[in-house]
């Protein structure tokens, strides 16, 4: 019994029960499938994160974001006048997270690709794009680059899902995807 020493001191020499061997074999095959699904998806799947990332100072990232906004703002929205920015298809687009907003609002064209740059000005934030349910972790001092291809038109929300202090639950941004 498991609460007493095994009868034979050298338990390594025991034969293994047949059911166990069968189950271990099945489990091992499944483990290998689980493993190779990940590299397989890198080759065949469409949803993979790039490994492109840079160390960056928050003020530099803010400058780049503001430069993009200055160039491509098409209108302002709401009481706070947050800019809606429509950068050209295929370009580098920026969204920054800070206490407690995602800035600016982006307007993208359907079925076009964009290089989305994300970073934080202060704490860590969580970029949760809804209703797609795409979730990325956003760090200060790191710039993450992901190529996205919005394939459905509509209004998307970016909810912060990394706890970032007392106003965390008010941190929501927007991305519009429009037909050309």
């Amino acid at each position: 019994m498991a609460i007493f020493p095994p009868v034979q001191r050298v338990w390594w020499n025991e034969p293994i029960e047949r059911t166990e061997i069968l189950w271990i074999t099945i489990s091992l095959v499944w483990a290998i499938i689980l493993f190779f699904m990940m590299p397989y998806w890198h080759l065949a799947g469409e949803q993979n994160l790039s490994n492109e990332a840079y160390k960056i100072r928050p003020e530099v990232f803010a400058e780049r974001t503001e430069a993009m906004a200055e160039k491509y703002t098409v209108r302002e929205e709401g009481d706070t006048g947050i800019p809606v920015v429509r950068p050209p298809a295929g370009s580098d687009i920026y969204m920054l997270g800070r206490l407690w907003e995602w800035w600016p609002i982006l307007e993208l064209e359907k079925d076009q690709t964009y290089r989305l740059h994300l970073s934080s000005m202060d704490y860590q934030h969580g970029f949760s794009l809804l209703p797609e349910n795409i979730n990325l972790q956003v760090h200060p001092d790191y710039e993450m680059v992901v190529t996205i291809k919005p394939n459905r038109a509509g209004e998307y929300s970016v909810v912060c899902n990394e706890y970032c202090g007392i106003g965390h639950h008010t941190m929501v941004g927007k991305i519009y995807v429009v037909d050309k």
Partner: peptide, 15 residues
């Protein structure tokens, strides 16, 4: 989201 006080976003600018 986890660790989130208000999924109604009552105090938020956008929701």
């Amino acid at each position: 989201p986890r660790r989130h006080w208000d999924i109604n976003f009552a105090d938020a600018v956008m929701s």
